[in-house]
């Protein structure tokens, strides 16, 4: 059996755990009870996907590696997630709608990411790495529900009130440039493409564009121009936000290494 490079598996795992952690910040703070539950469930799915991938890498690394050592004892400069996923749940803190928890930002990010993952997991189902293919087949089912959930809310916001429209548009304008990172293969992606364990992400660009354009049009939202800086989170060059996120996520495990309960 072919094996996907560990760094590629970590890229997928880090994506899931970092977004899972961000989405979990809504737990107990959701705008309505149903959404509080929905986001907790989305977060659980993502953390579950991350666990399956970390467990796979830990098994392949052998030695002392465990899912916990990979999630809790790697530093921010070793994480390989997209920058998009580590950004806080809000836009720049200026203007009349300034709040450190903005639901439109969360929904738009979940939409951009799950639109990508529905395409990517679908392709990864036929990866020549059978373990990765098995994880992809499970994760695809979950990503589809995440996509429907976020797309439905995006349309409600965009085609809703004047304020919900403005805030959804602000979130799209803020986050869309970060999606450029999806389409430039990193070294680990190139390695996975080369050994036949992953598809070329560039081949998914057109389908993603169509899905996003279609949903934004239904939501009466404008799609911003894509140009300028391409983030490099998946190459372990992150924004400052990841350090704080990991600081919170890893503090307990690092304060009490090996603790069980």
């Amino acid at each position: 059996m072919n094996k996907a490079p560990n760094e590629y598996l970590l890229h997928l795992a880090d994506n899931a755990v970092v977004l899972g952690q961000r989405v979990a910040e809504w737990c107990g703070h959701g705008p309505i009870l149903e959404e509080d539950l929905a986001l907790a469930n989305v977060s659980l799915d993502l953390i579950g996907q991350a666990r399956l991938l970390y467990q796979l890498v830990a098994t392949r690394l052998g030695g002392d590696a465990t899912e916990d050592s990979l999630a809790y004892f790697r530093d921010d400069t070793e994480f390989l997630n997209y920058t998009l996923l580590e950004l806080p749940n809000h836009d720049a803190l200026v203007g009349y709608a300034a709040s450190d928890m903005d639901y439109a930002t969360t929904i738009v990010r979940n939409f951009f990411y799950s639109a990508l993952m529905v395409l990517l997991w679908d392709k990864l189902q036929s990866s020549t790495d059978a373990d990765l293919a098995a994880i992809a087949a499970k994760s695809l089912k979950e990503a589809r529900y995440h996509l429907h959930h976020s797309a439905d809310w995006l349309v409600k916001f965009g085609d809703g009130t004047e304020e919900s429209h403005q805030r959804a548009q602000a979130a799209v304008d803020h986050l869309h440039p970060y999606t450029e990172e999806f389409w430039t293969p990193s070294a680990q992606e190139e390695a996975a493409i080369a050994n036949g364990t992953a598809p070329d992400v560039r081949a998914l660009h057109q389908a993603w564009d169509a899905l996003v354009a279609d949903t934004l049009a239904t939501a009466t939202l404008k799609r911003p121009q894509t140009q300028g800086y391409v983030p490099e989170g998946k190459q372990a060059r992150h924004s400052e936000h990841l350090s704080y996120l990991l600081g919170e996520m890893q503090s307990l495990a690092r304060a009490h290494p090996g603790a069980t309960w």
Partner: peptide, 11 residues
């Protein structure tokens, strides 16, 4: 689920 998606997956 093995098909190529162009737009939203079937609801």
């Amino acid at each position: 689920g093995a098909h190529v998606l162009t737009f939203m997956p079937p609801r």
